[in-house]
Design a protein around this nucleic acid. Structure first.
Lengths: 207, 207
DNA sequence: GGTAGTTTGTGAAGGATTTCACAAGCCCAC
DNA sequence: GTGGGCTTGTGAAATCCTTCACAAACTACC
């Protein structure tokens, strides 16, 4: 398949949110213009984004909300659950483990791990923090393909290496350090400080 | 000034990290190639990024680490502190309030607020959760220009409106909903579920 | 002082993404 | 069934971002 820009995928995720809201309000169809207005983009952009994957609308009418939800779910791979592990049960890891939004989208947290014996055993929602030495066994058993990495900077790279070796195929990294992973593994780093710095830059450079 | 792409600013933030590491190891100069390798980009990109703001290197030699750190700090606006408020003392808000990386970059959290009386008074590091009714007075007094918004989806928009009215100029939004703010206010939304969905898409669409 | 070896800064080229603009298709009313 | 009013899907144009490639400038060493 042709390469799809990340910005396109990000917008599809956003459209999906809006569509679910429309569905909740029992609106049956929606136009590219409506989705665009909500998403802060243009109707042409919405149509182009969808057109990479097929033809989902009806001219003159717009898109059937329920059908488009199904289609986008399938495009994003959300038509089946994604067992996920969280590594690091510090403040951020624990917060994410209890985060509603993940489960709602099919990212089932099947385990949260920490190297600190003091944290092991802590209950978090329906989970209990487990020892990081259990990671390999649990990954082999529960077959999560995604890991959310919330460990301190110093141990992020070795832990990423362990996860890759254990069979993890995608890592969402919250440690403020760029990680090296093999090409067969997908990596995304979310760095809160960088986001604030972008804000600071904008404030500094706009009159 | 000419418009600068967000990707450029994001990379500058990254270069700054590397430069600080080089400085900690007492390396005095660095080439665009070294920065590029660490950052997963090309040396031409590094030089182009910097060239938007001036000419910082010496041909044949590279960049003086300490001087470039100073220059990038100034470009990003990190040469002075940024008082910041966190709104919402739930799991994510509390985690961010205690996050080391913010203070390290000059984002001083001057207050954390919540509407839930049960949370008000909770100590977090050197701060105590305050009532959200204190927001307007505190913003007027402490003059933060940046707010980190960690409230539930349902109240995110009204709270953003309040913050804007109170004088906040930039919002980092963790609520999974796009907010409307006036053009004079900068907004960034970080949506964890979207990040996971991008991973899911990649896993689904790579052989 | 001159030469070899680096590395920067930057126009120009190339590639990617967004926007434009319009034909084609659909519904509804009559 | 025909016309009017919408809305999609999509090539083409425009814009934005990255990579290329090379002259200019510096150090080191003889």
């Amino acid at each position: 398949m042709k390469h799809i820009a990340e910005s396109t995928v990000r917008r599809l995720s956003l459209y999906l949110r809006f569509l679910e809201e429309f569905d909740a309000r029992a609106q049956a169809t929606v136009s590219s213009g409506e989705l665009a207005r909500l998403g802060g983009t243009t109707s042409a952009q919405v149509r182009k984004d969808l057109s990479f994957f097929g033809s989902f609308g009806k001219r003159g009418l717009g898109y059937a909300v329920k059908a488009l939800i199904e289609s986008i779910r399938e495009i994003l791979g959300l038509d089946h659950p994604w067992p996920t592990v969280i590594v690091g049960a510090g403040k951020i890891g624990a917060a994410l483990a209890q985060h509603r939004g993940f489960a709602a989208r099919g990212f089932t947290v099947v385990g949260i791990y920490d190297a600190d014996p003091a944290k092991v055993g802590t209950p978090l929602d329906r989970l209990t923090v487990r020892a990081d030495s259990d990671l390999e066994r649990d990954i082999a058993r529960l077959k999560p393909r995604i890991a959310v990495l919330c460990v301190p900077v110093g141990v992020a790279q070795p832990m990423a290496d362990r996860l890759v070796k254990a069979g993890i195929k995608a890592i969402l990294n919250f440690a403020p350090v760029p990680l090296a992973v093999p090409g067969s593994v997908t990596l995304r780093t979310v760095d809160m400080a960088t986001e604030l710095e972008i804000l600071a830059f904008t404030l500094t450079n706009t009159p």
